[in-house]
Simulated scan of single mutants.
Amino acid sequence: MTRKTVLVGQYDSPFVRRVAVVMHYYGVAFGRRVLSTFADFDTMLELGPLGKVPILVLAGGERLWDSRAILDFLHGRASPGQSLLPHEEPRRRQVLRVEAAAVGLAEKAYERGIELARRAPGTQDPTWIARLERQIASTLAWLELQRPAPFLVGPSFSVGDVTAAVALTYIKEKWPQLLPPGAFPALEMHRTVCEAMPAFQAAPYSATEAAQSGWRPQRP
């Protein structure tokens, strides 16, 4: 039986989901192994040294981890006309800048969630939470200023758009108070346009997988 590429992780993770969206966009066939870094941590450590998602298991058994490394591999296999990371400057660095901001947005939202959900009441650090919220608000404001119409860097869809859209959906699903209605109209339009694309529809955010992840600890 022929082995196929497998993406490990859940679709509530913006890092897993951005890899899945890019794979669908490129037409890369893959299977899924739905594992959580919390509920399935021992298994995740067997698959990768950090026990983090996403992990991409190639057909030959080789494993890649970290969404940046996985996407670099996928971009390298795409034809120049199909690649979501442009080859020409200055657009290439403009896309990389947007992608980096969107990855950071997702990371800071995740860190805030860990502080609120994983720490026991009375042990949370309000100063740290406030700092994270300032970073989130600052990044949202910067992305809004890019004036997506509908895409963030010029007229063409890019990996920056993928990453921004999945980060925005992640925040909207988990902490909607960080995205007040009407506060970021250009970003909401951008997110809506992206989420309607076939590659996004093929890898939708999963609240069911989030609920089964063990992300929120059971307290006595």
Rank of each mutant, 00 (worst) to 15 (best):
residue 207 A to F: 02
residue 181 P to Q: 07
residue 163 T to F: 07
residue 204 P to D: 02
residue 177 Q to L: 09
residue 197 M to N: 05
residue 200 F to T: 08
residue 175 W to N: 14
residue 183 A to G: 00
residue 193 V to L: 09
residue 190 H to F: 02
residue 164 A to W: 00
residue 166 V to A: 06
residue 187 L to Y: 01
residue 185 P to C: 00
residue 183 A to L: 00
residue 165 A to T: 03
residue 183 A to W: 02
residue 169 T to F: 00
residue 201 Q to C: 11
residue 198 P to H: 09
residue 192 T to F: 02
residue 186 A to G: 15
residue 189 M to F: 03
residue 180 P to W: 09
residue 179 L to F: 04
residue 182 G to W: 06
residue 174 K to F: 13
residue 176 P to H: 08
residue 173 E to T: 12
residue 180 P to D: 03
residue 196 A to T: 09
residue 177 Q to V: 13
residue 187 L to T: 01
residue 185 P to Q: 03
residue 185 P to F: 05
residue 194 C to K: 10
residue 188 E to M: 13
residue 175 W to L: 12
residue 182 G to H: 04
residue 202 A to Y: 05
residue 157 F to C: 01
residue 209 E to H: 06
residue 170 Y to F: 15
residue 161 D to N: 04
residue 209 E to L: 09
residue 160 G to H: 09
residue 178 L to R: 12
residue 173 E to K: 15
residue 164 A to P: 02
residue 175 W to S: 13
residue 194 C to N: 10
residue 170 Y to H: 14
residue 163 T to C: 14
residue 173 E to P: 01
residue 171 I to Q: 10
residue 198 P to N: 08
residue 192 T to L: 10
residue 196 A to K: 14
residue 186 A to I: 02
residue 208 T to D: 13
residue 168 L to F: 07
residue 175 W to T: 12
residue 162 V to N: 10
residue 198 P to M: 07
residue 178 L to M: 15
residue 199 A to I: 00
residue 172 K to L: 11
residue 199 A to L: 06
residue 168 L to W: 07
residue 202 A to V: 02
residue 161 D to I: 06
residue 166 V to W: 04
residue 158 S to I: 02
residue 181 P to K: 12
residue 193 V to C: 10
residue 172 K to D: 14
residue 197 M to T: 01
residue 203 A to T: 06
residue 171 I to C: 08
residue 171 I to R: 08
residue 161 D to S: 02
residue 169 T to R: 15
residue 198 P to Q: 04
residue 188 E to A: 14
residue 198 P to G: 07
residue 159 V to L: 11
residue 208 T to Q: 15
residue 195 E to D: 14
residue 197 M to S: 07
residue 171 I to D: 03
residue 180 P to I: 04
residue 205 Y to P: 05
residue 158 S to C: 13
residue 189 M to R: 13
residue 159 V to C: 07
residue 174 K to I: 15
residue 191 R to T: 08
residue 161 D to F: 05
residue 205 Y to H: 14
residue 203 A to R: 05
residue 174 K to N: 12
residue 206 S to E: 10
residue 159 V to Q: 13
residue 169 T to H: 11
residue 194 C to M: 12
residue 185 P to V: 01
residue 198 P to C: 05
residue 168 L to T: 05
residue 166 V to C: 09
residue 195 E to V: 10
residue 209 E to Y: 03
residue 204 P to T: 00
residue 165 A to P: 10
residue 195 E to P: 03
residue 179 L to V: 05
residue 158 S to T: 14
residue 172 K to Y: 07
residue 197 M to Y: 06
residue 164 A to L: 12
residue 190 H to N: 04
residue 199 A to R: 03
residue 199 A to M: 15
residue 208 T to K: 12
residue 161 D to L: 05
residue 202 A to E: 01
residue 191 R to P: 06
residue 170 Y to E: 02
residue 171 I to N: 11
residue 173 E to C: 13
residue 165 A to N: 10
residue 176 P to A: 06
residue 185 P to W: 04
residue 207 A to L: 12
residue 203 A to K: 06
residue 176 P to R: 06
residue 161 D to E: 07
residue 207 A to M: 04
residue 189 M to P: 00
residue 171 I to E: 05
residue 202 A to H: 03
residue 195 E to H: 14
residue 170 Y to N: 09
residue 182 G to Q: 03
residue 205 Y to N: 01
residue 196 A to R: 15
residue 163 T to Q: 12
residue 171 I to H: 04
residue 167 A to M: 08
